[in-house]
Amino acid sequence: MNKSIYVSVTMVAIILGLMIALQFRTASSIDRGVPYGREQELTVEKRQLDRDMEQLREEVADLSAKLEEAGKGYSEATDAFNSELLKIKLYAGLTAVEGPGVEVILDNLPENTRPGVNPYLSPIKDDDLLKVINDLRGAGAEAIAVNNQRILATSEVRLAGNHINVNLTKLTAPYKVTAIGNATTLKSSLEIKGGLVEYLSDLGIVVKVEAKDNILIPAFTGVLRFDYAKPTQRG
């Protein structure tokens, strides 16, 4: 009888002690925690910075080499200029490029284009194409074109009546979006569960994504005009 009292008193006291200490601990440590995911975020940011810096160093080496070349004489300077021009044109989308990638074909269901047949279905809108382009960019696409209209930094995708304007050129369905990059990454970024292919199919749009070993994406063919933007002294 006595023994069991000792045991239970001891147990109660231990539990009480634990509770007091735990209470103290929670109260004192609330403001010390690290927000969840912060470390991961920083790690990712660091990796991206690493990549940026590596690319910038390559750029520095490339420019320095050209600069040195240019100092040698007239014809070397011309060569250096031309190769710099080619590089910048490549970045800007003013050069035709080829490489592996995906071809995405978007088309309306036959009943989709006739109004009134099914009010829940709608023909392809500019928003749909914008989303496809944005997803491909996010998956690392290096060059994109819609029906062979190269997408530049200044390209618009805009609904105008029954067609869509890209680079002020009228395009009509079916729309063929081509992108160069890692074909597997590009394809899966669109086909992921709950992703764009699923979303667009629900809207009654026929989407076909195909990985290709080699895709040719043409250069921008329009005329570049900059009436307002002027380089600053620093640029």
């Binding site: 200029f81 710099e84 021009l85 910048i88 044109k89 970045y91 800007a92 989308g93 003013l94 530049l152 930094a153 200044t154 570049l224 900059f226 307002y228 933007a229 002027k230 380089p231 600053t232 620093r234 640029g235």
Partner: peptide
């Protein structure tokens, strides 16, 4: 041509209205 390509490529700082 180079100047325009730089503007489009986004490698130069620009100003304007």
């Amino acid at each position: 041509e180079l100047e325009k390509a730089k503007v489009e490529a986004g490698v130069s700082e620009l100003s304007g209205p």
